[in-house]
Every structure is written in structure tokens, then in C-alpha cells.
């Protein structure tokens, strides 16, 4: 689900050395939830590389990906083999190498590789409802240790998600807030996340309920003394 003008966002990032950028999920995984293709050749190179890898036998592919034979790990392998400048990473956290674009407002912007959408809406899998964190993801771990939280700036139509980042356990003025330009709603229960246009009835209440459920689950699940 998109919550802003992607073209303006991309303009704010400037030129890409690689011609192609995707979302980082962890040090070894990337997501295609949002991709920025600046040059046709870069996309062609990646698709050709993926096609070649898919021709491999399962056992070879498992070895290549160290047991994680899926496209997220393969994108990580592509970066490892070709170098980080071959496939750049769009900003999902404040320390992004590409910097953080702004829209008309002064707020800086981030993208969701799946972590926030999974946290607020859960996933389709049993036992992974609102409040779910995948701790193998960088953002999931940052959330678990309470360096970052998510919220909505408005409970009505036009609402937009935001994240607040705090350096380690410091609260207050040292924390910084960024708008999220998308939510990767893994559960595919999308209606509550609709914020403009023909908004289905009751979505505002559903959205508030989901966020509160996620936060309550998080409070119960994670030990406050850990950080």
C-alpha cells in the first residue's frame, strides 16, 4: 500500500550508480516489494542472472544460497558476487547510504520492506497475527530491542504511517520521526490500510484496532528489561 508520491521520492534520491535499487531486509536478504529501475540494462542483467540461477539443480541452488533457496536470498547473493554497487539499497532506516528524500514537507521518508506491514497486520501464517516480528529481519530486531516504533499520524482519511527511531534506550528529543511511504501488508487483509479514494466503511476503526492489537501483543511478548 502506497502513502505518497513515489516519483517525488525517487527524484529526491538522485542518480543511481547501479541503475537499480531494492529494499534491504537483513544483511543477506533483499526484497522486491519496491524496486527502482533507473536503467533498463541493470534490470536486464539481474533478470538474466536470476534466470541462470533458476536453471540450477535444487541441491546446487541450496548450496549457493546456504540453504535459503528463494529470491530474497538470491538478491543478497547477487550483491555479494557483483559487489554492493551492482544493486543499491533503498532507504528503510535512517542510516541509508542513499540518504533520505523529502516530499513537500520537511519530514524525511522511509520504505517498508515487510517488517512494518507484518507487525501491524500480521502474516497469513498461523500464530503470526498483529504484533508479529521477524527477528531475522533488521527492522524486526530493531523493534524487538525497542529502538524503533510505528504509529499513524491521523486516525481519519489521509492517515499516514510513521516510524520513530531512538538511539538505543534514549527517549525524548533524541528520537527522530520519519514518514513511511509504503506498507508491505503481508496478511493481504488490505482494507484497513486504505486511506484515500473510495475508503471502505469502518477501515479507520479497523486500522486503530490492528495497531493497538499489535502493540499489546508486543508488550506481552517481549521482555522490557532486555534493552
Amino acid at each position: 500500500m502506497l502513502y505518497g508520491d513515489m516519483s517525488a521520492f525517487i527524484s529526491g534520491l538522485g542518480s543511481l550508480e547501479s541503475g537499480l535499487a531494492v529494499l534491504p531486509m537483513s544483511p543477506t536478504w533483499c526484497s522486491l516489494a519496491v524496486a527502482w529501475v533507473q536503467r533498463p540494462a541493470a534490470l536486464g542483467r539481474l533478470v538474466n542472472w536470476l534466470t541462470d540461477r533458476l536453471l540450477l539443480r535444487d541441491s546446487v541452488l541450496l548450496t549457493l544460497t546456504k540453504g535459503e533457496a528463494h529470491e530474497m536470498r538470491l538478491l543478497g547473493v547477487y550483491r555479494e558476487q557483483k559487489g554492493p554497487s551492482s544493486l543499491q539499497l533503498l532507504p528503510t532506516q535512517p542510516n541509508s547510504a542513499l540518504g533520505l528524500p523529502r516530499l513537500a514537507s520537511t519530514e524525511r521518508l522511509l520504505l517498508d520492506p515487510a517488517a512494518w506491514g507484518q507487525f501491524v497486520g500480521g502474516t497469513p501464517h498461523p500464530g503470526q497475527g498483529p504484533g508479529f516480528l521477524d527477528e531475522s529481519h533488521t527492522l524486526g530486531e530493531a523493534m524487538r530491542i525497542r529502538r524503533v516504533t510505528i504509529g499513524w499520524d491521523d486516525d481519519g482519511f489521509g492517515a499516514q504511517p510513521f516510524t520513530t527511531w531512538c538511539p538505543f534506550s534514549v527517549e525524548g528529543s533524541d528520537c527522530v520521526t520519519h514518514r513511511l511511504l509504503n506498507l508491505h501488508v503481508h496478511s493481504k487483509n488490505l482494507a484497513p490500510f486504505m486511506t484515500c479514494g473510495a475508503v471502505p466503511e469502518g477501515t479507520v476503526e479497523q486500522r486503530i484496532d490492528l495497531l493497538q492489537t499489535a502493540q499489546a501483543f508486543f508488550e506481552d511478548e517481549y521482555d522490557h528489561d532486555e534493552w
Binding site: P40, L54, D58, A69
Partner: peptide, 26 residues
Amino acid sequence: LNSLSPFRKRSNRLWHTAVERLAVSL
């Protein structure tokens, strides 16, 4: 790409249709 895994024979649930979207975009 569509004639190859993961669309035909691999059933690992971690494979996402996002990779299909990449080929489709090209």
C-alpha cells in the same frame, strides 16, 4: 523465467511472486 522454478516445481513458500513481477516489468 516462467517456465523455470519456482513457478513450476519448487514449492518453498518463501518464493514470492515478486520475482515474477521483476520479469514482467522487464
